[in-house]
Simulated assay, not measured.
Amino acid sequence: MLSTRFTDLLGIDHPIVQGGMQGVGLAPLAAAVSNAGGLGILTALTQPTPEDLRNEIRKTRELTDKPFGVNLTILPTINPVPYDEYVKVAVDEGITVIETAGRNPEPYMPLFKEHGVKVVHKCTSVRHALKAESVGVDAVSIDGFECAGHPGEDDIPGLVLIPATADQLKIPFIASGGFGDGRGLAAALALGADGINMGSRFLATVEAPIHDNVKQAIVDGTELDTILNFRPLRNTVRVHKNTVSTEAVEILNNGGKFEDVQHLVAGARGRKVFETGDIEAGQWTVGMVMGIINDIPTCHDLITRIVTDAETIITDRLAGMVSSQAPAQAAV
């Protein structure tokens, strides 16, 4: 078993977190991850109303007695979102782990602290991680450029971002972006992280509530099959490279505005992909980690395999490279 500051903080068996994915972070997936020893995450805004979130939390509790969390992404929206009500439901229902993203969670920190909630804030840069630490979050999820969804605007990959974060952050943190197997977990730990967050890898699992065609598209895809959209708008998002996302990128790169691509990138079209399995129906999020996803296991089998492989890499392969003998002297 791999014990880290993160597993100790949250009382979980393995340092693996399921990303809070819109339309995907539902009870069956979150419970499966938690039952396997990781940390499952419900996505609050997947639920149409705060009361729907309450029902999903209760449904998850029927499926697992292990810790699980709720993701709350706080962003400006065209239609106002009752963020305060979603937060109140999570706290009232006794959720002990909340993953925040988007806006600074500082306004909610007193409430979280009062109720013993552990806060994990998602960041895409060291400076944002340090700000989150300063407002009192308990841990950070640091997202490298490889990640699905919003990688920020700095374009720093995990190989640099993770150790840079480790050099400055005092609280525990997990690494996100490009993780999908035991090699990645071992690497993240070696670079200074206390665990990993995986989104795309959990899309290609038996319990993921998406169409099998999408899961197979992820298995068939490579690290070259994503595209960065909204770059000219400074709101970069990494998505699957299909006809829809490619058209949107071309429009924006040629001087178009968001209004010119809104019909292409509407969330309803992305949800249609997951529901119908038509991978060309809209823009949908997935990361470069597609290049190392080769099967569709259960969450239990996936997490067990990742942890076992990471332990073997650490204890056998890497340890076997260390010699206690002094280096041989070169001949003169």
Rank of each mutant, 00 (worst) to 15 (best):
G184M: 12
A32L: 11
I210R: 02
R317T: 15
E207R: 00
E311A: 03
R317F: 14
H14S: 13
I57A: 08
T43F: 06
I313D: 07
L191K: 12
S125P: 09
N213E: 14
D155K: 15
E93C: 08
K215E: 04
V33W: 00
G267E: 04
I314P: 04
K272C: 07
E93L: 07
A139K: 02
T246Q: 14
I251W: 02
N235A: 15
T49N: 09
D212E: 14
V307M: 06
D316G: 08
E51L: 12
E133F: 05
Q325K: 13
T165N: 11
D309R: 13
A328I: 13
D84E: 15
V81K: 09
A281Q: 05
I314G: 05
E85S: 11
R305P: 00
V87D: 06
P107C: 01
Y108E: 02
G40V: 04
F173H: 02
T315F: 07
P48W: 11
G25W: 03
H211E: 12
N253S: 12
P209I: 12
N71S: 13
E146G: 07
E223R: 10
G287V: 02
D154G: 01
G282Y: 00
N253Y: 09
V273E: 02
L72I: 15
N253D: 15
R317I: 13
I156Q: 09
H14A: 14
V289Y: 02
N35D: 13
G182N: 12
H300T: 15
Q283K: 01
M109W: 11
I293L: 10
L161G: 05
D92I: 09
R103F: 06
T315L: 10
A281L: 04
I196S: 04
G267P: 00
E207K: 01
P151H: 07
A266E: 03
L252R: 10
I279K: 03
T43A: 13
N213Y: 06
A268G: 08
M1K: 14
L252N: 04
L228V: 12
I57D: 06
T315M: 05
N104F: 03
N79S: 14
S176P: 01
L203S: 01
I171N: 08
G11T: 06
Q325A: 14
K118D: 02
A331K: 14
A331N: 13
C123I: 07
F202V: 08
V214P: 04
A188M: 07
T243L: 11
G184L: 04
N35Q: 12
A32C: 05
T312V: 04
V244N: 03
V244Q: 10
E106K: 15
L169V: 08
G20I: 10
L10R: 02
L42T: 04
K131M: 15
A129Q: 06
K59Y: 00
D225C: 11
D301Y: 00
K88H: 06
I251H: 06
D92Y: 10
L72P: 06
S34Y: 02
F145M: 12
H121K: 09
V286K: 00
V89Y: 02
G20V: 08
A319L: 11
V332L: 09
G158R: 05
